[in-house]
Design a protein around this nucleic acid. Structure first.
Length: 486
RNA sequence: CGGGGCGUGGCGCAGCCUGGUAGCGCGCCAGCUUUGGGAGCUGGACGUCGGAGGUUCAAAUCCUCUCGCCCCGACCA
């Protein structure tokens, strides 16, 4: 029988493949009626909810508290921090009319593109003493940035995220917070998303508008491009000064607070898709899969149906009791083959087939989402063994992703080799020397569209060794990460 | 904003050149037969052909304007 090709193969057209996977897994659709926006459908939103739940747990475990600030920000606030204005002004959506009347100049609001300014304002009201510090706040919210090019999950006009905002009495403490959060992001990406990341510092030209330094985690997608999956910023005293957030120090003087901000967004869902999925559809790591296991009952006659469904219901209850999120696909009118393909497209990690033959043998046929064949497992102990099987699958996905990345990571020492790696729009992770100047970085970008993703933190990437800049030949202390990026 | 493309049942498309009263596939609904890797047959529902104006006896088709979307470039989590 002819295989239905609902999903464009990755090798044929990667962007098409990405869109197809999202459609076939029923994660989201382009809103169309609202420019650049998307509708996150239940299966996609459920993944985001699982991401939220785990990150929220980790933030709270490290002393952060959730709060909520207004969606609308006075335009005057945005104007207060020079670099911030310059960075965000072009992509603001501004409210110019309200209550049936135009707003006066100076009364306009923008819809938040990020909340440093309005949170800075309130920090100024809340903080008076070193005893009020550190102040550790997180907000789950939506933001709007008027992007020219949008792609579902990766870059949409409106997106969901969390933004952490903290204030500290010393720069050392603020920097510690910035790096601590980066570790949380890195650990989450690796342990929950099964997505290996490189932790690093952004170059000056890539850093957040208004930050002294930006740190990031960078992941490799299956086309070799890099995805910035999370950022953590050392804001210095920039916003403290702009919003007059002063405090009395223990010694009796006054100082401006040292702030940080950090965030991850629904972009993570895009990263998840592009880290694991294949030409059959979505692949989800069990820890983030809304449905971890699906039971597909198989029967011919009504008599068989009653027996199979009874056993299936019992199995479902046992599996659920073992802590596994399980669904029994009892839909009529669809043959098992249909259901198999559907759940594969949706990325369910393990499928359990249960029919009269299995019941007679006291077993079930199982199949992991990434596997050659099926495995027979005893019915009696399945519920007990399933959690371990899922953990094994989680680990296997991480290992697979890690191997994929390593195979596409190279150290490059000459400009011609560099051009060769990135020719025809290809991308890999290239570790190469850079002279540290903005000019050289810009020259590389202009010529190749390749950017420096980050300067790796200690322990990331190749061990630091001096060398010569790939473009200018000038001295360099360590290799940095180059790649095409989303 | 520059270059290219496209708007026709829910989705994907044909029809347009050469005007004649809208068709195909998938999906959907009903019934029967099926059900261990994408089922078959029969019957059925669903369209102001993106919008406005014009030419004409007659416009999905020709002309003008307009709106929207997609792809490629400059901004970005």
């Amino acid at each position: 029988m002819a295989e239905k090709t609902r999903i464009t193969p990755q090798a044929e057209n990667y962007p098409e493949w990405y869109q197809d996977v999202i459609r076939e897994a029923d994660l989201a659709e382009v809103a169309k009626v609202v420019k650049g926006c998307m509708v996150i459908k239940p299966h996609g939103y459920a993944i985001w909810e699982r991401i939220q739940a785990e990150l929220d747990r980790r933030f709270k475990a490290t002393g952060h508290k959730n709060a909520y600030f207004p969606l609308l920000i006075p335009m005057s606030f945005i104007m207060k921090e020079a670099e911030h204005v310059e960075g965000f002004a072009p992509e603001l959506a501004v409210v110019t009319h309200a209550g049936g009347k135009p707003l006066e100049k100076g009364e306009e609001y923008c819809i938040r593109p990020t909340s440093e300014t309005i949170i800075g304002h309130f920090f100024g009201k809340w903080i008076t003493s070193y005893r009020d510090l550190p102040l550790l706040i997180n907000q789950w919210a939506n933001v709007i940035r008027w992007e020219l090019h949008t792609r579902m999950f990766l870059r949409t006009t409106e997106f969901l995220w969390q933004e952490g905002h903290t204030a500290h009495s010393t720069h050392d403490e603020a920097l510690e917070e910035v790096l601590h959060i980066l570790d949380i992001y890195g650990a989450f990406a690796q342990d929950w998303m099964a997505m290996p990341v490189v932790r690093g510092r952004k170059t000056d030209s890539e850093k957040f508008a208004g930050a002294d330094a930006s740190f990031c985690i960078e992941a490799m997608m299956r086309d070799g491009k890099a995805l910035q999956a999370g950022t953590s910023h050392d804001l210095g005293q920039n916003f403290g000064k702009a919003f007059d957030v002063k405090f009395q120090t223990e010694a009796g003087g006054t100082d401006f607070v040292w702030q940080t901000s950090w965030g991850v967004s629904t972009r993570l869902v895009g990263g998840l898709i592009m880290t694991h999925s294949d030409d059959t559809g979505l692949i989800l790591p069990p820890r983030l899969a809304p449905i971890q296991a699906v039971i597909v009952p198989i029967y011919r006659k009504d008599g068989e149906k009653a027996e199979v469904m009874a056993v299936a219901e019992k199995l479902k209850a046992d599996v659920a009791a073992a802590g596994v999120s399980v669904e029994l696909d009892a839909r009529e009118g669809q043959r098992p083959g249909d259901k198999f393909y559907e759940w594969e497209r949706k990325g369910v990690p393990i499928r359990i087939e249960l029919g009269p033959r299995d019941i007679a043998e006291g077993s079930v046929m199982t199949r992991l989402r990434v596997a050659e064949g099926k495995e027979k497992m005893p019915l009696a102990t399945l519920a007990r063994d399933l959690p371990a099987a899922l953990e094994g699958f989680q680990a296997a996905l991480l290992e697979r992703a890690r191997r994929f990345r390593e195979e596409r990571s190279v150290q490059v020492d000459t400009w011609s080799d560099f051009l060769d790696v990135f020719k025809d729009g290809a991308s890999r992770f290239v570790w190469a020397h850079w002279d540290g100047t903005r000019e050289t970085e810009a020259a590389v970008k202009d010529e190749t569209k390749v950017t420096i993703r980050c300067v790796p933190l200690p322990g990331e990437g190749p061990a630091p060794e001096p060398g010569k800049c790939i473009k200018t030949g000038r001295p360099s202390a360590q290799r940095v990460l180059f790649a095409r990026a989303y």
